[in-house]
């Protein structure tokens, strides 16, 4: 049966079961996470407004890897990320540690490409970060997450709108880490970071992956971010053009094929 004709399958039958035993499952997932792929995507297609945006994608992402989803503008990178996050409907099946997304929400975190908010809005960094969890988080725990991304605790009482683009990006990552996620999704994480900040940022992601065993999935069209950081790449242009280990898959020829002369994708 072709994926496009398949019934939308983003709420499988065992989802409610998963939710009912959420705490037990989360504990068991954390214990046995190495036995399963962090994310498995099977025959996933996405139609938005009657347009085929993604067609029949199948791949699996190992636990603890950094994975880059590459492709030119309009290739469906963000759409795939949003499907994996359960933010848009899709055909096919997406599992996180073998479970439906609704059962493992506490294990995932997301840093959006743009955080569109009124910069004059009165909210401090500490107050905004605290919203990410259902219960109040002590300021010292928030401060320690800020320290992990290289930001001082003095930032806690600073107005969120006063941050630079790079500081904001790091705050959003620190916020995402408050729940100790096992999978971190990032959409164009380097978009607001200057060249000098990119090395720090790459270091943060490496640390998360290698020392804390967090699976990092990021959408990017910045090839320079991929080198030396990313374990696997997924090349996308509506359909899957490549998937595999970076050093095996990401050849000059493949880059040219994926970006078709799009200079934005070559380097930054």
């Amino acid at each position: 049966m072709p994926a496009s004709s398949r019934k939308t399958n983003n709420r499988p039958a065992d989802a409610s079961n998963d939710r009912n035993h959420g705490r037990v499952h989360l504990h068991s997932i954390v214990e046995h996470k190495d036995a399963l792929p962090a994310i498995s995507v099977q025959n996933v297609s996405v139609d938005l407004g009657g347009v085929h945006v993604l067609e029949d994608l199948t791949f699996a992402i190992p636990q603890g890897d950094v994975v880059a989803i590459l492709g030119p503008n309009g290739s469906g990178k963000t759409t795939l990320l949003k499907a994996m996050l359960g933010l848009i409907p899709f055909h096919g099946e997406i599992r996180i540690f073998g479970k439906h997304l609704h059962a493992v929400r506490e294990l995932i975190a997301y840093v959006p490409q743009r955080f569109d908010f009124d910069r004059e809005f009165p909210i401090t960094v500490g107050e905004y970060m605290d919203l990410a969890r259902h219960r109040h988080t002590p300021p010292d725990r928030i401060a320690s997450r800020l320290a992990e991304v290289g930001l001082p605790a003095t930032l806690l009482d600073q107005r969120l709108g006063s941050l630079s683009g790079g500081q904001m990006q790091r705050v959003l990552i620190a916020q995402a880490l408050l729940n100790n996620p096992l999978v971190l999704f990032l959409d164009e994480p380097a978009a607001n970071i200057d060249i000098s900040g990119e090395a720090t940022f790459t270091g943060i992601l490496k640390d998360l992956s290698k020392r804390q065993d967090v699976t990092v999935v990021m959408v990017t069209h910045d090839i320079s971010m991929v080198t030396g950081l990313v374990d696997h790449v997924l090349c996308l242009d509506g359909r899957m053009l490549c998937f595999g280990r970076t050093n095996q898959v990401l050849t000059e020829k493949k880059i040219n094929e994926v970006f078709r002369g799009d200079s934005a994708g070559r380097s930054h």
Binding site: G86, L87, I108, Y110, P112, F117, L131, A132, R133, H134
Partner: peptide, 18 residues
Amino acid sequence: FRQLTYLSLSEDNAAVSG
């Protein structure tokens, strides 16, 4: 109140958080 504040500022993040 917390949920409303979060979803009013960042709807996608609020949805991902459950």
